[in-house]
Nucleic acid binder design. Structure first.
Lengths: 193, 193
DNA sequence: GACATATTAGAACATATATTCTAATAAAAG
DNA sequence: CTTTTATTAGAATATATGTTCTAATATGTC
């Protein structure tokens, strides 16, 4: 019962994501989000407890989008597939990439998260840690602090660096970055002892 | 003539830098900056045209601090010295490093810069470009788009990536990152043809 | 010592924006 | 057809913060 909805949660999250990607998180005002889809500001609060909760939904969606594919590449492949996932995902998802790689979580969500969302976020980072550790153990035979650091550097940090420059310019990373990432990956992951 | 100053420009810039490094640029309110050194808010405006101008001074100081040493390492050495300058500078200058590597210029300075400061900023980025180009030419024999991209990746982007994770955690990067950077540098800068 | 002025001092003002509140609507249930 | 209620609708409110304004205070100059 009750009146039919003109808008749904997705639309607000989409609008916030679009604005954040294009103009940065500070431009995501409630009025801008509502205006983007022609909704009244009251409807934002009808659907989300606060701006922080809306932004947290944006972050969770973007992070999950990146990570699902990343982890399956990591589980299946030799690692280089996971390293190359970053430039590929960035090409495919320009807006999401800007949000995930250009801003830190605390910039998007200033205040504290509701318990239920905190759980979801924690789940995401735990799955990533587990995937990395498992891969390091598979590659180096053991997964001590240094093996894990090397792995993180090769398959997360370096691909991130390779791609960041282009994201900042609003461009898609060129194919050549895959070659750079591959060279660095091979050099770093080569067993040294 | 006139009353003696209790405060000077440096102190306000220092205060803004400290707050930005510790709590992010959004925490750099005029009241916070003034409060940090026990000055009245009016004195901030007596010395700086606006918050943006103050933040621009912060950025210029930090950028110059990083770049002066970086460029002299690049001019003298074989490139690896420049690549390793990043982790070393970060260890030496934790607060400045947070500002330079954690936030983009537009986050620090939202509005437009006064012409004179714009010149200073442009000078900084031009010197960097020139240094990189010169080094690429010296290393590869020529400095086409791809040679320059490779060079930027090896001596700027990768070191940045190696260090970022620690900066975010408020830690100093461990010595091991120098080894990772070196491996990647050698792999990337090796002439391929 | 009186004056001019650079600077401190902090209250007042303007504005942007998150949030709340009250009312209007429309659809389902009986 | 009346009642109930989910939702739209947007005006009103509260607050934070950049900026401006007016006054007080020292210090050098005559």
């Amino acid at each position: 019962m009750g009146r039919n909805a003109h808008f749904n949660n997705e639309q607000f999250i989409d609008a916030a994501l679009k604005i954040a990607a294009a103009q940065g998180p500070a431009a995501v005002t409630i009025a801008a989000v509502a205006g983007e889809i022609g909704a009244p500001v009251g409807s934002v609060y009808h659907r989300f407890l606060s701006r922080d909760v809306l932004m947290a939904e944006v972050w969770l969606r973007v992070a999950a989008s990146f990570q699902d594919e990343f982890l399956s590449a990591l589980e299946k492949g030799e690692g280089i597939e996971a390293a190359l996932h970053t430039p590929r995902w960035v090409r495919q998802h320009s807006a999401e990439a800007r949000i995930l790689l250009l801003y830190r979580r605390e910039e998007l969500v200033a205040g504290s998260w509701p318990e239920e969302m905190k759980e979801r976020a924690l789940g995401i980072s735990r799955r990533l840690d587990a995937g990395i550790t498992e891969f390091a153990a598979r590659t180096f035979g053991k997964a001590g602090r240094e093996e894990i650091n090397q792995t993180i550097f090769a398959i997360i940090d370096v691909p991130y660096a390779a791609v960041l420059r282009y994201i900042r310019q609003g461009k898609k990373p060129p194919r050549a970055v895959e070659e750079h990432i591959t060279k660095a990956f091979n050099a770093i992951m080569r067993r040294t002892k």
